[in-house]
């Protein structure tokens, strides 16, 4: 698990973050073309970045409260790396998703392809975040490690649920 911290991205970090910034725009663009409405272009990145921005402080506060948080700088670096991982993963999934979307006339297929791409990249981003936070908090007691794992799991589920709910509402709008 800790290897992830020492293994750099095979692309510059800036490029990875650029992927993360533009990937959700592209996913939103897919939905916008299908819905004939520009709204999803902004809604998709707003969901991704808005939800994480809204819930990230909670992760730090809760981890620190149970005595399991790395330093603020380490947590910030971990989030930046996780975003980079999310961007790289999304860059690899966007082409297949676009192909599946454009080769079908069904809005459901577009929504499913966009959801799988965004969800898959999101899960990998969360996994990378967990790896980075674990690597940044070496020397914790077993109790603190357990508490940190529980806090992260609850945070990840809550963040995923909020983002999923908002994404579902966007998908319903596109499908209608």
């Amino acid at each position: 698990m800790t290897v992830a911290t020492h293994a750099p991205f095979p692309v510059p970090r800036g490029l990875a973050v650029a992927f993360a910034a533009t990937g959700p725009l592209a996913i939103g663009g897919m939905l916008a073309v299908r819905a004939h409405d520009a709204g999803p272009v902004l809604a998709a990145p707003a969901i991704v970045f808005g939800v994480v921005a809204a819930t990230a402080p909670a992760l730090y506060i809760a981890s620190a409260a149970v005595g399991a948080a790395p330093s603020l700088a380490t947590v910030a670096r971990a989030f930046a790396t996780a975003f980079g991982a999310f961007g790289i993963a999304l860059a690899g999934l966007i082409l297949p998703a676009v192909f599946i979307a454009v080769s079908s006339v069904s809005p459901r297929t577009t929504i499913a392809a966009a959801s799988v791409a965004l969800g898959g990249a999101g899960v990998l981003g969360l996994r990378r975040l967990a790896d980075e936070l674990e690597a940044g908090a070496r020397g914790r007691t077993p109790g603190a490690t357990l508490a940190a794992g529980a806090v992260f799991a609850v945070w990840a589920v809550a963040t995923g649920a909020i983002a999923g709910r908002l994404w579902w509402e966007l998908a319903v709008e596109v499908a209608s």
Binding site: A4, I88, A91, G92, P96, G120, L124, R128, D131
Partner: peptide, 10 residues
């Protein structure tokens, strides 16, 4: 996707 998903995890 093989390259991208692997790279995302290091």
């Amino acid at each position: 996707a093989l390259s991208a998903l692997g790279a995302a995890l290091g």
